[in-house]
């Protein structure tokens, strides 16, 4: 088992004809993801990678039965593309695009949530259920199927941790990059319940960073609702306050959103936090 995506999912690509969209469509197909169509407004009726292109997500979902869309549309055009997805019967929208204005994300989140469509991202690497389905941009070959769930606000740091898991013989059920923006569609607390309910996930790794209080909420959720083990990693112990560390959401605003404060709260709730990447494996094997 896995969460959100598995071998049966039918996926469409928004922005399939763009530079990033076409490159990663190829990569996803090679990994074994069932891509059933693409969406590029104005290019409906053509084909790419052997699948039909549609003008709207609604039409694509109707004709192909897709339930997942992954979006590589540039930030300037992300809002109409997200609202287009919100007007369809999708179940899951994954927005890879970086640099989407926050108000656009908020408005799309409101529209998607009203329709019961889950949003992952934006500004994220996507998600992968190893051996079954990859919806995003992560290198597939570092993953291997197994019992560990991963939720992360980061991209390459997640790959680093996943590789350490795989090298140590710890496979993954599903790995989700939730994104580094201030407003994201799915937070730790939105996804932990799914891993808790997934019979094949035995433990979860959460990878957080400075800024916001999502990790603190995760600690509270864990304490009150979870039986499975959770291990953490927090980036940004050396980050100076008030500075945006690359990710739009990674900024220390007060005393509560520093890495040190988050580590203290996670550990107090019973989630051990690794100081080094290799310690994630050590803590999971304990």
């Amino acid at each position: 088992m896995s969460i959100l995506i598995d071998g049966a999912g039918k996926v469409i690509v928004q922005g399939i004809t763009g530079r990033d969209g076409s490159f990663h469509t190829q990569q996803m197909i090679e990994y074994g993801t069932t891509i059933v169509g693409g969406v590029t407004p104005g290019k409906g009726g053509r084909t790419a990678f052997g699948v039909p292109i549609f003008d709207t997500v609604g039409e694509a979902v109707e004709k192909t039965g897709a339930d997942v869309s992954v979006m590589y549309v540039p930030a300037k055009f992300a809002k109409p593309a997200m609202l287009d997805a919100a007007a369809s019967a999708l179940k899951l929208l994954v927005v890879i695009t970086e640099g989407v204005p926050t108000l656009d994300v908020l408005e799309a989140y409101e529209a998607l949530t009203a329709k019961g469509i889950r949003l992952i991202g934006p500004n994220c690497p996507g998600l992968i259920s190893p051996g079954k389905c990859k919806v995003g941009i992560m290198p597939g070959d570092i993953h291997t199927p197994g019992p560990v769930g991963v939720i992360s606000r980061s991209g390459t740091l997640t790959y680093e941790i996943v590789k350490a898991l795989t090298d140590a013989g710890l496979g993954q059920s599903t790995c989700i990059g939730i994104g580094g923006d201030p407003v994201i569609g799915s937070k730790f607390t939105d996804l932990l319940p799914l891993f808790e309910a997934d019979p094949e996930t035995e433990a979860v790794v959460i990878v957080g960073e400075i800024g916001g209080r999502d990790e603190v909420d995760a600690a509270e959720y864990f304490k009150n609702h979870m039986k499975k083990r959770v291990v953490g990693f927090m980036a940004g112990l050396t980050a100076p306050p008030g500075r945006r560390m690359g990710h739009a959401g990674a900024i220390v605003g007060g005393e509560d959103d520093t890495a040190a404060s988050k580590i203290a709260k996670l550990e107090a709730a019973g989630i051990p936090v690794a100081r080094l990447i290799s310690d994630v494996v050590t803590l999971l094997k304990k």
Binding site: A239, A250, A259, L276
Partner: peptide
């Protein structure tokens, strides 16, 4: 480093 999260983790590891 490539990636903001990994860049922070790299700084933290150096400090460690």
């Amino acid at each position: 480093v490539n990636g903001a999260g990994l860049a922070m983790a790299t700084m933290d590891t150096i400090k460690h």
